[in-house]
Design a protein around this nucleic acid. Sequence first.
DNA 1: TCCTTTATATGATATTTATCATGTTTCCCT
DNA 2: AGGGAAACATGATAAATATCATATAAAGGA
Lengths: 143, 143
Amino acid sequence: MLSNSSKYALKAVLYLAVNSSQATKIMAKDISEPTNIPKAYLSKILQELSRHNIVSSVRGPGGGFYLSDSNREVHLMDIIHIIDGDNRLTSCMLSLQECNAEHPCPMHDLVGDTKVNFVKNLENTTIEDLVSDIKAGKSFLPL
Amino acid sequence: MLSNSSKYALKAVLYLAVNSSQATKIMAKDISEPTNIPKAYLSKILQELSRHNIVSSVRGPGGGFYLSDSNREVHLMDIIHIIDGDNRLTSCMLSLQECNAEHPCPMHDLVGDTKVNFVKNLENTTIEDLVSDIKAGKSFLPL
DNA sequence: TCCTTTATATGATATTTATCATGTTTCCCT
DNA sequence: AGGGAAACATGATAAATATCATATAAAGGA
């Protein structure tokens, strides 16, 4: 479904969303440990996200990663696009070019609206939305 | 979503379902061409499927692959399981061990029932079901 | 200014997935 | 029998993904 890298990216960003702020930056190491993401790999992912303004960062002592207010308005799909590219989720079940409602592949209806809806959800949901759910006890931060 | 190999497997089996019978066997090469699946790779996949009794085959002149009546009752998920293993589709969005309706990860609800339904469809749908759809003009054989 | 601490950039290794190649077995045909 | 046509088995290569390692740049404090 998602690549490992995307899953790590989402977990890390969620961790930052819950635990960080401009005043409370978190070092890669301190994200890596609780989330069980290999430190070096995580660093690379965070850098990629930073380059695309998904997360914020400052170097040097007292530095680290955090989410600014605007970072929190990022949509989940943005993160996935950056890491996985943009056709991993949206392509047809059988990777066919011509597969649509008018000319469906045999598996088209099995997925049906479900995938469309899911993608739509990813496009509409922001990090902040998920944080609200967590704070409301509707879901739990993945560790 | 699915691995390349699974997609190839599904396409090849569907091709056989529509075009082959015990009396009309098809060589790997003649499946490879119309479906645009690399011949050598396809052969390997077909052998794996044959070993698991998903497709039938006979060697020697006049031989080839075909689907027996019982092959046609195979469920789509069986094919995917053989090629991709059994947790690529069913695992949580973030690959968490403990993610369920009682203890959902933040993305759990985004997928919602959609994935559950999709998996259920794969488990319930047989090759023959898809062939019926194709014959009824509801969908088109992927080439 | 210099040292430490942290992110950043870049590249190296490993693992998985996809693809190709080559020999072996089985079966039909003559 | 023997030769050719096919699947079958096995292993080699290539490409993508995941992981690790090392050097550089920025920032703060002594």
